[in-house]
């Protein structure tokens, strides 16, 4: 039996606007994410992907509906540090060196030295950046900064990793390398991932499940299981099944537009 990591029931999110008008960002979202899965939220800009991720991460309150994470309320889960977050921008603290940035969550939870630095260093090994521990963020490329952000999100061994277009600002080649890296990390840590992206190939390559969303109001248009073999490797992108899945996801998106 696989356990449920995230469950959303009838979740709505309405943003009030001036003069009484309002934006319905999400409407009637029902979604269940199994522990250990890699689930992508895919859809055009403005369909509520970030909003949904923020609701799961307890950075926003839903207007209606219920959310549970690890069987708890999102607020409980956040205070238990059940998840790590990676944003579109690396959001590193520029006054801290790389090691200090990765150690930030450990400081907040009160882990003492030398365990703290040891643990942060381990995480840097995981993203293959140990040699850069003493660099400042501005001395790193965009891709390296994003890997630091991933290392930081993983330091507390979260059971759930929330990622909002983490590779959105990267060039295509760096992006593919980061995808491979993320696949390896996911395999090694066995964490559950909820991943927001605009890119169909990225969603299909990474995920075990793609949740296709449509805008105005943001709804789930369909869920596509991506039963490509694990681990995903470079050649995965050359398999016929991979292309079939691209087509399948694309059709769910298009069916909604008509």
């Amino acid at each position: 039996m696989t356990s449920v990591m995230v469950s959303l029931r009838g979740v709505d999110k309405v943003f009030p606007r001036r003069k009484g008008a309002s934006t319905v960002a999400l409407e009637g979202i029902d979604l269940e994410i199994r522990a250990g899965d890699f689930v992508s939220l895919l859809g055009p800009s403005g369909c509520g992907k970030s909003t949904l991720l923020r609701i799961v991460g307890d950075l926003l309150e839903p207007t209606a509906g219920t959310v549970t994470v690890n069987g708890k309320s999102p607020s409980r889960a956040r205070h238990d540090r059940d998840y790590g977050m990676v944003f579109q921008q690396a959001t590193l603290l520029e006054w801290r060196r790389v090691l200090g940035n990765v150690a930030l969550p450990l400081e907040v939870t009160g882990m003492a030295e030398p365990q703290r630095s040891e643990r942060a260093r381990e995480m840097l090994k995981l993203v293959e950046l140990v040699e850069f521990a003493d660099h400042y963020p501005w001395q790193l490329s965009g891709g390296m900064q994003q890997r630091v952000a991933i290392a930081r999100a993983l330091t507390l061994e979260p059971s759930l990793l929330l990622m909002d277009e983490p590779f959105g600002a990267l060039d295509e080649m760096t992006r593919e390398r980061m995808q491979m890296e993320l696949m390896r990390i996911w395999q090694e840590t066995q964490t559950t991932v909820l991943f927001v992206t605009h890119s169909i190939p990225e969603a299909v390559f990474l995920s075990t499940q793609v949740v296709v969303m449509t805008p105005r109001p943001g709804r789930v248009a369909g869920i596509v299981d991506i039963d490509l073999p694990q681990p995903r490797v470079f050649e995965t992108r050359e398999e016929t099944k991979y292309f079939d899945k691209l087509v399948e996801v694309r059709e769910v998106l298009r069916a909604e537009e008509e």
């Binding site: 205070h79 959001t91 603290l93």
Partner: peptide, 23 residues
């Protein structure tokens, strides 16, 4: 973004003050 990061870590206000706002 930095405030949101600290929130996601459930950091108490003084931690955000000391580690983010002050520097």
């Amino acid at each position: 973004a930095k405030v949101e990061l600290m929130n996601s870590l459930a950091a108490p206000d003084f931690a955000t003050l000391w580690k983010v706002r002050l520097p």
